[in-house]
Write a protein that binds this DNA or RNA. Structure first.
Lengths: 350, 350
DNA sequence: AGACTGCAGTCAATCGATTTACCACGCCGT
DNA sequence: ACGGCGTGGTAAATCGATTGACTGCAGTCT
């Protein structure tokens, strides 16, 4: 059966197509109440929904938005970010174009051109890792950066508040009584936005607590379980009075590596050492034994924020249009007080 | 700057818009070679790209496809499936609409209506878990089912070949010399398509190898590490002559639970017991210690297949248009020969 | 009476392409 | 001289909506 067109509604209601359009778009200032109802009933009766293509041609607005992402494939975060974006789009009666560029700059350019051609109402430029990016050419004014921020500014952006996240992680450990707290960092992030901010949070809180960090407490490894394990082993090799009782890890996978290292030395978590991760990857943080206390990346909320700002239903902050999204702490079972022997033996500030 | 329209090209080339359209769409049987070149040059010079909205209105084809999925959020598989679909779409010059319905039937209906209104050229109906579904109403003829199959048939579908996957997993264990092989099943999958097929594969191979399965070897648990651990403990409690030396697990998370159970009894993998998982979840299979041998779900290939069939660049099989995508084995380090004492002590068929 | 003002709708142009039907021209054959 | 035919291209209709300009009519004011 052929699509129902506006002229079918017009015929059924005994009016012109103009009238139908005016009524259904609530621009009907000059149409009588009685006619309006007749039109609405006719539209419902014949099951009319406007053709978005035709409407788009005329109005230059398509009720679609494009989401360009460097890679949805290789990270398990993608889902929540897309889900947040997609939900916000749906709630605002928009459809979402998804393009995964595979981090290929040429594909990215091509995608943006295609989306602009399609007359999307806005573009979300999403990264799967928090970083600073050189914005691609041809981005329309209504563009929002998601989990990244444009080097040149000029567009709204939303990123996790890594600094605050780092602070809450370390505060949690300090509050539990730890004073020798390691920072199990990731190496070669490029650029190291997340790593540096979390590190600053770490330093802030130590300072606040009057703890002078031992440089040996800052170790690095690749961002996997293996990397975390290696880094943890170096820390556990430290002499007893310098060996950390708590580990703040760049991500959950590295934290899982810390678990492995600890187990190999017969150390029990959280009895002997406490661990805090970052990311809240369900598959890792929720499944290790004991479940990992960690800082969640607010991917869903960021996805939603980006779309809402892009569609204008939410305002970007002024004057810096970058929103820092809080990273909530997820309490599980990997943190407790340090062993009695170690408590209060941290190095105090002079 | 305003968009370049076809009339701008026509003006630049000194011809009519009809001619431009004919030339650029290669329908120019009646246009001289010379004119064609002039038109192409003019188009390139002014940087013309056709307006897909206008074209879509006229041709009723939009070069877009819709992907409706029950939930991209809660599973880390989504990425690869979307990536495959998205790549195939891009290669065929199509754009992909993504809709996540959150498994809400009403949202799903609404989404399909919206996509049909948008005149997408095809719809991919994707599930995040292999299952049989009641197809929603209003699906256009050019629809393809991804990781699910319609109860009523009638549409192309692509699903993992779970039966063959189950077989290769168990064959791997049999080939290593195991004869007491457990099936660590998931409980309450609804409907249990994947579980049953893998189980049949398990039974097939045991039969093939002349092994009579002990009913106690079939245990169930929720599909998480905790579930796998609980199930494994029941197996390890069996008397020594019935206790399995190998564990085929419904998924990698459950396999990780088997690791935990084994460790708690001082058993080493793969020296004391061998384990094979399913899914090849990077975050789990690649990160546990030792890395897990498992069967990969071919999500990327399935996503690609679905789009290619939807766009007609690939044919669906006949007469049953359901394609079984092979699940490749991923060899890691969790399988070896059984301990000498246990070898060859499985129960033989009468 | 004539001009003016609202009211209730409608006409027709428009968005930017595609495509069918037609036209102008030159040449050929009879 | 005239019909027929091939060539090369164009005019105009069309897709399905939106929207600014306009019309017809009744009542009001001067």
């Amino acid at each position: 059966m052929a699509r129902v067109r506006i002229s079918d509604v017009a015929a059924a209601a005994g009016v012109s197509t103009s009238t139908v359009s005016l009524v259904l778009n609530d621009r009907a200032t000059r149409i009588s109440q009685e006619t309006r109802e007749r039109v609405r009933e006719a539209a419902a009766a014949v099951g009319y929904t406007p053709n978005p293509i035709a409407r788009g041609l005329r109005t230059q607005r398509t009720r679609t938005i494009g989401l360009v992402s460097d890679e949805i494939a290789t990270t398990p975060f993608a889902g929540r970010m897309l889900a947040g974006a997609q939900d916000a789009a749906r709630e605002n009666a928009h459809l979402l174009f998804l393009v995964d560029t595979g981090a290929d700059r040429a594909v990215e350019q091509e995608a943006i051109r295609a989306l602009v051609d399609q007359q999307v109402d806005a573009i979300i430029y999403a990264c799967m890792w928090h970083r600073v990016v050189e914005p691609p050419a041809g981005l329309p004014p209504r563009s929002v950066f998601l989990d990244c921020r444009p080097a040149s500014g000029g567009h709204p952006a939303v990123v996790p508040d890594e600094l605050a996240g780092g602070r809450s992680a370390v505060r949690e450990l300090v509050a539990a009584g730890h004073r020798r707290i390691a920072w199990v960092d990731v190496e070669e992030q490029d650029p190291p936005v997340a790593s540096e901010l979390r590190h600053r949070g770490y330093l802030d809180v130590l300072d606040e607590a009057g703890i002078v960090p031992d440089p040996a407490w800052h170790v690095r490894g690749v961002g996997s379980a293996a990397g975390g394990r290696g880094a943890a082993e170096r820390l556990l090799d430290l002499p007893a009075d310098r060996r950390p009782t708590a580990f703040f890890c760049f991500n959950d996978r590295m934290a899982a590596g810390v678990y492995v290292a600890a187990r190999h030395r017969g150390l029990e978590i959280p009895r002997d050492i406490s661990v805090v991760g970052y990311d809240d990857q369900q598959l890792v943080a929720g499944e290790v034994d004991p479940p990992l206390t960690t800082i969640a990346l607010p991917h869903e909320e960021m996805g939603r924020w980006a779309v809402e700002v892009a569609l204008g239903v939410r305002e970007a902050p002024e004057p810096d249009p970058t929103h820092l999204m809080p990273c909530p702490m997820v309490h599980r079972d990997s943190v407790s007080s340090p062993p009695a022997a170690a408590a209060n033996s941290g190095r105090r500030r002079a």
